[in-house]
Nucleic acid binder design. Structure first.
Lengths: 360, 360
DNA sequence: TTTTAGCACTCAAGGTTGTTGAGTGCTAAC
DNA sequence: GTTAGCACTCAACAACCTTGAGTGCTAAAA
């Protein structure tokens, strides 16, 4: 609400920071007396109370009810994240686990993201998501085919961003290597680099004419291509560590948890949330409580960072947890993992020796 | 634990059936008085009490505490499933939704299973899982390669059961079409149809020697192949509708739910559970409570059915819910979906015209 | 002017107690 | 074999009290 919080003097900042960190740790409203234990704050409880009252009127703290302790408000967390928080220092153990991911040398973004989610969930004890957005180019630049069986072949589609999709297609007629390579050629000639709305019926008919026999295959293939191009909200979302959330009392209310889980399963909304976010922002992004547009997430925080490869956003990795979250640790973890993945992707295309020369 | 329950007379069966159905519907222990409302049972509450007492001593019913109503025991449910239950009749609406799946014409088992899980979860209001077991042959019968980029190619592996796996492999050296097809040839010659323990170092060295330049690629490829062959518990598990479970009071205890969720996320145990089950059993299989070996599932029921294609088990689809479950509906749904998928898979290999000749 | 001690006040949490009502088992009559 | 009647049990609920952490305010100390 209010500006950057520069109106706060050092003492208020110290107290606010202490309150937030205590609350994150204990999970309960923190009172003035509790803070007097903090060696950094050499004040009586009464003085602290006065400061807390002011912090509350400034909107950084809230009181669940008269004469309970104080709890950080959304703006409190926001101010903390923006100005007060110190970077979390990874432990040796944590760094080791991260490096194991880097050494795995997974080239495929999907499998890489899957490993990354598990890692993120394991390290932070929150739920982690990995997102692969719909490829944005909207065209397929190259087709490849692989004959798998007399009646089955695989269509490999590569788009401008290097995204690769495979689909298997069956045919009731027998397919020969020769037919298939003619089909491949035809596709690369006529369909490659076309947007879905440029694939007209007459174009398809032309291919079918050129192709002669087996129009059945052509129409199956075209249908598959169009489906792939136009996949409604494309993208893919993987999750890990959903069960971690149940450790936090915030989610002990089954109804609320169910709603959040519903959103996570639905995938669509989360994908939108992430892809709507600031495209140019390179670092970790933090959506606290109602900063998430989704009603169901108003009591949760989402921290995520986009993963870029060759200048394009190819994915994102994030953490979802209660508003009361160990921001310092989570943000560092997400940032570190995302950066590493970006690095791996970029280097695996051109200079894979950047990683440990030995596996295992 | 006693035998098939043939010692029960008709009246006991009627009462047991009524109790189970009432309990499934209401979710609460059912008392003798409640049952007198049932027109089929024209008895006084006292008589019903006597019968209930006998059913309890036979092990089919349980009393949560003195003078609450009765609740079906595990054997009670088991007897119900084996002998009392009538088949659920699908509504028009439900049949329509099933048919939509059949019309989607998804050839790939993965995508088909994913759609099927969502459907099953939606129809039953429980959590649904789809399982693709580790391919059992343990060998790859055919390799294919597709060049995707100067430094990137795709390795397609087909195993005996028609299972197809793709992996992308990068190389720091440039790859030509020609090198790649030589690699493919070499793989099909030397590695195809070999078990993972038959791929010896000397064999690999031989390939590298034959292959001349670019040994880097060979070793990456072999590593990938071995990984694929030896994937610890292979298999894949998809879930849908996890949030449905939270609607049932059985899962309002967060701790217990967390454990179940943990098992579901772990995947490994569930895969084992299903693959350990009776291989020859073609119909739906029902594991009630502690019939599941997993401790975490002792309060849940799992209903699943294997999906066969060409005589082999290629997957399974199942439902997980509380022990108090609408068995009739769930079993029918699982059975129907599994049968349909089997049908689709078998027909799409040979006679795809079995399905509606028109899409949409 | 700032800080602190003291005090009255508030209110959630948790314990105790009593009431209610659904349900049972047993017995005696039908 | 079935039923009505009755005494008994026990979870669920509500009413009540106690406790204690925490507050705001005021007046005195620094």
């Amino acid at each position: 609400m209010q500006g950057g919080g520069s109106e706060l003097n050092e003492r208020k900042k110290l107290i606010l920071k202490a309150i937030i960190e205590a609350h994150v740790k204990e999970g309960e409203p923190v009172g003035s007396k509790y803070l007097t234990q903090n060696k950094q704050i050499a004040l009586s409880s009464a003085t602290i109370r006065n400061e807390m009252a002011e912090l509350e009127s400034l909107g950084y703290l809230e009181q669940p009810y008269t004469s309970a302790g104080r709890v950080p408000s959304e703006s409190g967390y926001r101010f903390y994240v923006n100005s007060l928080m110190q970077k979390y220092r990874m432990s040796q153990n944590e760094l080791a686990r991260m490096n194991a991911l880097a050494k795995s040398r997974l080239a495929e973004i999907d499998r890489l993201l899957e490993s990354a989610t598990r890692l993120a969930a394991g390290l932070t004890n929150y739920t982690s998501i990995a997102i692969k957005p719909k490829q944005s180019t909207g065209v397929i630049t190259k087709f490849k085919t692989v004959l798998l069986d007399k009646h089955l072949f695989m269509l490999v589609m590569i788009d401008g961003t290097g995204n690769i999709k495979t689909r298997q297609i069956t045919s009731d007629e027998e397919i020969s290597e020769e037919t298939l390579s003619r089909l491949e050629e035809e596709l690369n000639l006529k369909i490659a680099n076309k947007r879905v709305d440029e694939i007209t019926v007459s174009l398809v008919m032309e291919i079918e004419r050129n192709f002669g026999a087996g129009e059945g295959i052509v129409s199956s293939v075209i249908k598959t291509v169009c489906e792939t191009l136009g996949e409604p909200e494309g993208g893919d979302l993987k999750m890990a560590g959903v069960n971690h959330l149940l450790e936090y009392p915030e989610f002990s209310d089954a109804r609320e948890f169910k709603e959040l889980l519903g959103v996570l399963e639905e995938k669509r909304d989360i994908l939108k949330l992430v892809s709507d976010s600031d495209l140019d922002e390179d670092g970790p992004q933090v959506l606290i409580g109602s900063e998430n547009v989704l009603e169901e997430m108003k009591n949760s925080t989402m921290v995520f960072q986009k993963i870029k490869s060759g200048g394009k956003v190819v994915g994102a990795i994030g953490i979802i947890g209660p508003r009361r979250m160990d921001y310092s640790k989570v943000i560092s973890t997400v940032e570190y993992i995302a950066q590493n993945i970006s690095l791996m992707l970029n280097s695996s295309l051109s200079l894979p020796e950047a990683f440990g020369e030995d596996e295992n």
